[in-house]
C-alpha cells in the first residue's frame, strides 16, 4: 500500500517535471505568439476605434470607422461581395478537383511518384511567377487559352472570352487559375486514402461492389476528415485572397476583382487610414468566424476511422 502511494507520488512528480519541461520547450513559440501574434491582434482592435493616419498618435473616435464602413462605403460592400463570390466558388471547385486528382493518382502504375510530384509542383511556384504565367495564358488577344479555344469560338460564332479583362469573367478566371494549385489538397487526400484498410475493399469486392461503388461507399466516406479539413482551410484562405488580384488585375476591371483584402491593404497603405483598415480586419474576422462556425456544423457528417459509434 505504502509502496503504491510512493509510486504514485514519484509518478506525479515526474509528470509535473515533464509539464514544466514542456512549457520550457514551448516557451519560444508561446513568447513569439504573445509578442508577434497576440499583441498586434489586440493593438489592431484598439486601432479600429481610432483615427490613425500612420503618423502621429491614434485618437479615439468610438464606432465611427465601423459606421463609415457599414453605412457610407460602397466599395466596402463591393469588396465583400467579390470575396464571398470567390469563396463560394473556389472552395467547392477546389475540393472537387483535389479529390478527383487524388482518386486519379491513387493507383499503382509505373511512375506514379512522378505524376504526384508534377501535380504538386504548382504549389511551390511563387505566386508572382504563377500570376504572370496565367496572365499570358489568359490574355484575351494572344493568350494560349483563347488560341486553343478559337475553333469553339468559330463554331459558336462568338467573340473570344475576355477572361481577366472582362468584369463578368474576371473573378471566375482567378478561381480557375487557383485550381492549378489543387495538388496541395490532393496530397492530404492521398495520405488519407493510403490509410484506409485494404480489408474494406476486399470485403466489398467479395460482396460484388464495383470500383465506382467502392469509391462512393468506402473511399469518400473515409476521406471526410481530410475533405472537412480542406473545406475549413479553403474558407479561411479564400477570405484572404489578395496577391493574385494585386498582380494580375490590380482589382479591376471596374473593381470586379477588388477583394476585401485588397481594399484593406489600400485603406492602410494608400489612404493612410490605419483605423478603418483595422476595423475592416475585425469585420473580416467576424465574417470568417461566422461562416467557419456554420461550416463546422457539418462535422456531424464526418466519419473518423476508429471512432466508436
Amino acid at each position: 500500500m505504502a509502496k503504491n502511494k510512493q509510486n504514485k507520488n514519484s509518478l506525479g512528480a515526474l509528470r509535473k517535471q515533464e509539464k514544466k519541461l514542456g512549457y520550457v520547450f514551448a516557451s519560444p513559440w508561446l513568447l513569439g505568439l504573445g509578442i508577434f501574434g497576440a499583441f498586434p491582434i489586440l493593438a489592431s482592435l484598439y486601432l479600429s476605434f481610432t483615427r490613425y493616419r500612420m503618423v502621429g498618435t491614434p485618437a479615439w473616435i468610438g464606432l465611427a470607422n465601423y459606421r463609415a464602413l457599414f453605412f457610407n462605403d460602397s466599395i466596402f460592400w463591393t469588396s465583400l461581395y467579390n470575396t464571398l463570390y470567390h469563396v463560394f466558388l473556389s472552395v467547392p471547385l477546389g475540393l472537387i478537383v483535389g479529390i478527383l486528382l487524388a482518386l486519379l493518382l491513387n493507383t499503382r502504375i509505373r511512375g506514379i511518384g512522378i505524376y504526384r510530384t508534377l501535380f504538386y509542383l504548382p504549389n511551390v511556384v511563387s505566386i508572382v511567377a504563377m500570376s504572370l504565367l496565367w496572365l499570358w495564358l489568359f490574355q484575351p488577344n494572344f493568350g494560349l487559352i483563347n488560341q486553343v479555344l478559337s475553333p469553339v469560338y468559330n463554331l459558336l460564332d462568338m467573340e473570344p472570352l475576355g477572361w481577366y479583362r472582362a468584369s463578368n469573367l474576371s473573378k471566375l478566371t482567378i478561381v480557375l487559375m487557383g485550381l492549378w494549385t489543387a495538388g496541395g489538397s490532393m496530397i492530404i487526400y492521398l495520405a488519407q486514402m493510403q490509410d484506409i484498410p485494404r480489408d474494406y475493399y476486399e470485403a466489398a469486392e467479395i460482396d460484388g461492389a464495383n470500383g465506382f461503388q467502392q469509391t462512393i461507399k468506402i473511399t469518400l466516406p473515409l476521406m471526410t476528415p481530410s475533405i472537412f479539413f480542406n473545406f475549413i482551410m479553403g474558407i479561411i484562405l479564400g477570405f484572404q485572397v489578395f496577391a493574385v488580384a494585386y498582380i494580375m488585375t490590380q482589382g479591376g476591371p471596374g473593381r470586379s476583382t477588388y477583394y476585401y483584402g485588397y481594399y484593406l491593404f489600400d485603406k492602410m497603405i494608400n489612404d493612410n487610414n490605419m483605423g478603418q483598415a483595422s476595423a475592416m480586419a475585425w469585420v473580416l474576422l467576424v465574417v470568417t468566424l461566422i461562416i467557419t462556425l456554420l461550416a463546422l456544423t457539418l462535422n456531424k457528417y464526418v466519419f473518423y476511422l476508429g471512432e466508436q459509434d
Binding site: 479591376g252 476591371p253 489612404d271
Partner: peptide
C-alpha cells in the same frame, strides 16, 4: 480624405470608360 485620388480611386472608373463599360 483621398490621398490616392489620382491612382486607384480614379483609375478603376477611368479603365471602365476606356473599355466602354461606362
Amino acid at each position: 480624405y483621398a490621398p490616392n485620388w489620382h491612382a486607384i480611386d480614379w483609375d478603376q472608373f477611368f479603365q471602365q470608360g476606356l473599355s466602354g463599360e461606362l
